[in-house]
Computed example of a mutant assay.
Amino acid sequence: MVRTPLTPEEHERGERLGRLLREARGGRSMTEIAAVAGLSAETLRKIETGRAPTPAFFTVAALAGALGLSMDDLVTRCAPVPAPGAGERAA
């Protein structure tokens, strides 16, 4: 099965998710949070650094639970940022 290449927007969304997770982790170690979420520290490292920009839903849900984040907040904060002028109609 060939995977469709990710768009720049998908990469950017993955980077935003990684930053948000790193910020929420604060001073706690990757190993600690990964263990609580039932993941490997390497998986968490890849997500936080944007090397895994499209993690599975259940992976994100487990991390959100381990970090005390709501899925609604994650969705809102990781949503694509509209380009200037996007959504405006041409006159």
Score class of each variant (00 low, 15 high):
residue 6 L to E: 04
residue 6 L to W: 06
residue 6 L to D: 09
residue 6 L to P: 05
residue 7 T to E: 10
residue 7 T to P: 09
residue 7 T to V: 09
residue 7 T to G: 08
residue 7 T to C: 06
residue 7 T to L: 14
residue 7 T to K: 10
residue 7 T to S: 15
residue 8 P to G: 12
residue 8 P to N: 11
residue 9 E to P: 06
residue 9 E to Y: 05
residue 10 E to I: 05
residue 10 E to W: 08
residue 10 E to L: 13
residue 10 E to S: 05
residue 10 E to P: 08
residue 10 E to D: 10
residue 11 H to L: 15
residue 12 E to Q: 14
residue 12 E to D: 14
residue 12 E to Y: 09
residue 12 E to F: 10
residue 13 R to F: 09
residue 13 R to V: 08
residue 13 R to M: 12
residue 13 R to I: 12
residue 14 G to P: 05
residue 14 G to H: 10
residue 14 G to R: 03
residue 14 G to C: 11
residue 15 E to K: 13
residue 15 E to M: 15
residue 16 R to C: 07
residue 16 R to Y: 07
residue 17 L to V: 07
residue 17 L to G: 05
residue 17 L to N: 08
residue 17 L to Q: 11
residue 18 G to E: 13
residue 18 G to D: 03
residue 18 G to Y: 02
residue 18 G to V: 03
residue 19 R to G: 03
residue 19 R to E: 10
residue 19 R to V: 09
residue 19 R to F: 03
residue 19 R to Y: 02
residue 19 R to A: 15
residue 19 R to I: 04
residue 20 L to C: 05
residue 20 L to W: 03
residue 20 L to M: 12
residue 20 L to H: 03
residue 20 L to K: 04
residue 20 L to S: 06
residue 20 L to I: 13
residue 21 L to V: 04
residue 21 L to D: 11
residue 21 L to R: 00
residue 21 L to E: 05
residue 22 R to V: 07
residue 22 R to G: 10
residue 22 R to P: 03
residue 22 R to A: 13
residue 23 E to G: 03
residue 23 E to F: 02
residue 23 E to I: 11
residue 23 E to D: 13
residue 23 E to L: 05
residue 23 E to M: 06
residue 23 E to Y: 01
residue 23 E to C: 02
residue 24 A to G: 05
residue 24 A to H: 04
residue 24 A to F: 00
residue 24 A to V: 05
residue 24 A to Q: 04
residue 25 R to I: 10
residue 25 R to Q: 05
residue 25 R to E: 11
residue 25 R to S: 13
residue 26 G to H: 02
residue 26 G to A: 11
residue 26 G to W: 00
residue 26 G to I: 00
residue 27 G to Y: 01
residue 27 G to V: 06
residue 27 G to M: 06
residue 27 G to C: 06
residue 28 R to S: 11
residue 28 R to K: 13
residue 28 R to T: 03
residue 28 R to V: 05
residue 28 R to H: 11
residue 29 S to N: 07
residue 29 S to F: 04
residue 29 S to D: 03
residue 30 M to Y: 15
residue 30 M to V: 12
residue 30 M to K: 09
residue 30 M to A: 14
residue 30 M to S: 10
residue 31 T to L: 13
residue 31 T to P: 00
residue 31 T to I: 09
residue 31 T to R: 14
residue 31 T to C: 03
residue 31 T to M: 11
residue 32 E to W: 11
residue 32 E to K: 12
residue 32 E to T: 06
residue 32 E to R: 14
residue 32 E to H: 15
residue 32 E to V: 05
residue 32 E to Q: 14
residue 33 I to A: 00
residue 33 I to Y: 00
residue 33 I to P: 00
residue 33 I to H: 00
residue 33 I to F: 00
residue 34 A to F: 02
residue 34 A to L: 06
residue 35 A to R: 14
residue 35 A to V: 09
residue 35 A to L: 13
residue 36 V to P: 00
residue 36 V to Y: 01
residue 36 V to T: 15
residue 36 V to S: 02
residue 37 A to E: 01
residue 37 A to V: 07
residue 37 A to L: 07
residue 37 A to T: 08
residue 37 A to C: 06
residue 37 A to Y: 02
residue 38 G to C: 06
residue 38 G to M: 02
residue 38 G to K: 03
residue 38 G to T: 03
